[in-house]
């Protein structure tokens, strides 16, 4: 777990660079809540909280949730999300190892469905918005709900690239026009693509360290980009370039850090490939036709449901069979 946290560091620094201190506040609030909830639940279950808290699994869950949240969120958003993730999605199922769903994504989806406004209030990336929020202003907003003086919150926030793409495509605008928006970078969203690169680096390090195997990330990214590439010729003006999918939203973070949670994923190698590909394809479907701009969280949860069945039918050939 410690190595996973370490691998998240480059991406997190990039997030802070582009989106401000709100990212760190999210992660810290979520972590504190998760660890407190974990300890409290274990106390309630008459277990020793120490080994469970020190295995850092609650912190990993909280970190992933915190990084997935909008970068300027009221304090209760990470708190509610982390509490749901640890109490409902993890401990009520029996704690570490027994949760069928990825706790971080369960918490994220609960927030997304319950608080859509707060969950879509993203700060614009540095270099796109003209104002940088200072640490004081950020804290004032997070804990006091006080919008920055002067221009108001709208001057700082904007829709995410995926959201923008989806909305404007819905208005029948062409991809080339949409991409003229300064929000978009070379491949994905400005800022976003660099964050994705740093997450990718951390993910590759995890594979190198043998903490995860390549199967799920590769299958998921191939499933996502492959489906996009397959569909792309059907309308180049009405669809973003396939690689756009890779470098926007939560694709990379999801592929290397979220879908690879061993507890809720498949365990055989063939199973992992199917599991990952399923997440990729579902993500594309939700992004393209679904009601939400990104679909990584929903896709992960859907494939979590399918994981035991996939595992059952993809057992490796046993010796002598």
């Amino acid at each position: 777990m410690g190595q996973v946290l370490l691998a998240l560091v480059p991406g997190t620094i990039a997030m802070v660079w582009y989106f401000g201190m709100g990212v760190l506040i999210n992660v810290l609030l979520a972590s504190a809540t998760a660890v407190t909830c974990e300890a409290a639940m274990l106390r309630l279950r008459s277990r020793d909280p120490m080994p469970a808290v020190s295995d850092l699994s609650a912190v990993v869950t909280a970190a992933l949730l915190g990084l997935a949240l909008p970068t300027l969120a009221p304090w209760w958003l990470p708190v509610v999300g982390a509490a749901f993730a640890v109490v409902i999605a993890k401990q009520l199922y029996g704690g570490l190892g027994y949760n069928p769903f990825n706790p971080a994504m369960a918490g994220y989806v609960v927030l997304l469905i319950s608080f859509p406004v707060q969950m879509t209030t993203w700060l614009g990336p540095a270099g796109v918005v003209s104002h940088d929020l200072g640490i004081g202003e950020t804290l004032a907003y997070v804990f006091g709900g006080v919008a920055p003086a002067g221009a108001g919150l709208d001057a700082y926030t904007m829709a995410t690239p995926l959201d923008t793409m989806k909305t404007e495509l819905g208005l029948n605008r062409m991809v080339e026009e949409i991409r003229a928006n300064p929000l978009f970078g070379d491949i994905g969203g400005r800022g976003w693509e660099w964050v994705a690169n740093w997450y990718l680096l951390g993910g590759l390090w995890l594979i190198y360290r043998r903490v995860i195997t390549w199967h799920i990330p590769v299958a998921m990214l191939v499933g996502l980009v492959g489906t996009a590439a397959f569909m792309y010729p059907l309308g180049t003006d009405s669809q973003p370039f396939p690689l756009f999918h890779l470098f926007s939203g939560g694709a990379i973070l999801g592929a290397f850090f979220i879908a690879t949670d061993p507890v809720s994923a498949c365990s055989s190698n063939r199973g992992k490939l199917i599991f990952g590909a399923g997440i990729g394809i579902l993500t594309y479907i939700i992004r393209t036709w679904g009601g939400y701009p990104d679909g990584v969280a929903f896709s992960v949860l859907l494939m979590n449901m399918a994981a035991p069945t996939i595992d059952y039918y993809t057992q490796p050939r046993a010796f002598g069979h």
């Binding site: 699994s57 570490l96 190892g97 195997t213 061993p262 365990s267």
Partner: peptide, 8 residues
């Protein structure tokens, strides 16, 4: 003994 996280 710790919980199995199915690390494989």
């Amino acid at each position: 003994e710790l919980p199995c996280i199915r690390c494989g």
